[in-house]
Design a protein around this nucleic acid. Structure first.
Lengths: 349, 349
DNA sequence: ATGAAAGCGCTAACAC
DNA sequence: GTGTTAGCGCTTTCAT
């Protein structure tokens, strides 16, 4: 019941293991068609599959990449995982899934382990403003593609960043609201601890200013330290709590920009709890365009990230760097967001 | 920049590699505390991490398991992946993610590759009624835990199945509807091609009969061959299309049982398209209790699967079989579903 | 155009 | 209690 080895294939085909190996690795340009034929027959007959551990031990290469996301339980990250995996599969790569739960320590431990496993390429979806905790490995040759996080000053020089243009997206959303006539806007997000959150907020402020509104007067929720306590899975909880706060105000906002779709759905839920009708009493706009945005009642106006393309780019960047691990130039790919107008936004009542 | 090897650690600590290995593998009961100390110091100093490829090549074991799901883009599978990964991580295992996209061929290819990678344990979320395509590997020693699919007659003897009691769950849902006074029910699902779909439908029928209704008179949607064309990601699309059909009927149903939550959300969407109000004109009940069920408007009545427990069970079953790969008895674990009543169900108008 | 040989880093008998 | 030794299956010079 032992596995078939390259040795057995060689014996069966009447050649040496190295010849089989040569064929396997595409070094068959000057191989006799007959030899080649014999080997292929033997492989088929024996059902031979190369042992990856052995191959990896020898070459130091793996065709496995790591994917670190906050949580695949969140539909947004789930969708990313699906697309990354699909792009990887098409090139014969496998994906090791890591849920950081937005815990920096877990994130670091994971990357350490991936490295120890021989995984030299990782798509990292980190909320952390600094990537210092992974620098040692990057210096040792770890290839990193940051997803949903634009490059920062202290980042490793070779870092590739794939992200939607968050500021533009948020500004688009905000502008849509002010165009509809809204003057009293609120912004809902957790603590602006991560790069992309900051950028999205910046877009919100820019949108306000463009409409001649004073950002200082815009509402923010949830207030207080509570904002820090919400992780990624609970984005909807956060939105719901924030909406409750907002509804209780003397002068509630007529429009709300949420940090992302899950949060926006929570906001909608909280608004309903407070007896308000979304898309009528209050407008809500999200960010991401997850599948559920178009399913919700009312359907959610949101900013779409071109996920499939972004995922494909993330993988192909990683792959090309894995193939040529020389010291390479870092770069940022910023994708263009698109405003998708649906039912959750309307002129103020 | 080469990696630190066990040899270097040994040299540094002034011992032999085997002694280091012994410590690493917990064979340190009768080791001099001093030796142990020296080794640990050396490990820390050098930042040593064992090379898994080498270890795997030597022992034939991996601490990686495979997880094959239809698509992590679907929140239900995303949640499962998160929980499985979390259970695995707690025991030092890693999870290789595989999206089958409900393609039997992809499913098989994946499992073949996992096996070739030295992965001997797989949690398989297959919709397929037959597991014949993976039998050869099971016979070679592949440990398989089927998730969301109860054991079938032709299954491998050693198979472990983890599933919610689908029939009971569906019956609970149906009964809830008939208790509310509904007489004209519809069932929405794709083709009953998979084991769990069949079971859920059986529960629906049982619920009807228990209420003295004739299952033959119950509606089913979508009708026609269209039902086959929907995969997993598009469950919501299917629900929406089905609702459109149902709404167009002379006598539309007053209550709808959907195969799962994503489908139910699609149904709600379709109902709204048709101008009907969910939870008032029509009642809808789903299955799974994904996070969004409680976020939706109206909140969705559904049947909860105890995901975390089920995921933990799946992993621990797999693990124990991996640890003792002797020919083991197959078994089925059927978890108790729970009806969660929310706003989407009410007495008929 | 093919083969022989060495060794990747680790573990597990078996010595001592 | 610790060291010696012999590979696990594969790739890759270097010969031929």
């Amino acid at each position: 019941m032992g596995e078939v080895t390259i040795q057995q294939v060689a014996t069966e085909a009447g050649v040496s293991p190295s010849t089989v190996s040569n064929l396997l690795n595409g070094r068959n340009h000057r191989m006799l068609p007959e030899t080649r034929q014999r080997i292929e027959t033997a492989i088929d007959k024996l059902g031979y599959r190369p042992n990856r551990a052995a191959r990896q031990l020898r070459t130091g290469r793996t065709s496995t990449i790591g994917l670190v996301v906050p949580s695949v339980g969140n539909p947004f990250w789930g969708a990313l995982a699906r697309h990354i995996e699909s792009a990887a599969l098409a090139e014969g790569y496998h994906v090791l899934l890591c849920n950081s739960e937005r815990d920096p320590r877990r994130e670091r431990d994971y990357i350490d382990e991936l490295w120890a496993d021989g995984v030299h390429g990782v798509v990292l979806c980190s909320s952390l403003p600094s990537l210092e905790h992974v620098m040692p490995l990057v210096e040792r040759g770890l290839q990193l593609v940051a997803f949903d996080r634009t490059s920062q000053a202290g980042d490793p020089a070779s870092l590739v960043s794939i992200s939607v243009d968050n500021a533009v997206g948020s500004q688009l959303a905000t502008q849509h609201l002010t165009d509809l006539g809204h003057r009293r806007l609120a912004y809902v997000s957790g603590a602006l601890a991560s790069v992309n959150r900051k950028e999205r907020y910046r877009g919100f402020v820019a949108g306000l200013e463009q409409a001649g509104l004073d950002p200082a007067e815009a509402l923010r929720a949830p207030t207080g330290s509570g904002a820090d306590d919400f992780g990624d899975v609970e984005a909807s909880e956060l939105g719901r709590a924030a909406a409750a706060e907002l509804v209780a105000l003397d002068e509630p906002p007529t429009a709300i920009v949420a940090i992302n779709d899950m949060c926006a759905l929570g906001v909608c839920r909280g608004l309903r709890d407070g007896g308000l009708e979304v898309g009528k009493d209050v407008s809500v706009v999200g960010f991401d365009d997850i599948v559920l945005a178009d399913l919700y009642a009312p359907t959610l106006t949101t900013v779409r990230q071109p996920m499939r393309e972004m995922a494909a780019a993330a993988f192909s960047q990683l792959r090309s760097r894995l193939d040529d691990p020389g010291p390479s130039q870092g770069q940022s790919l910023l994708f263009r967001p698109e405003l998708i107008v649906r039912e959750s936004t309307a002129p103020p009542p």
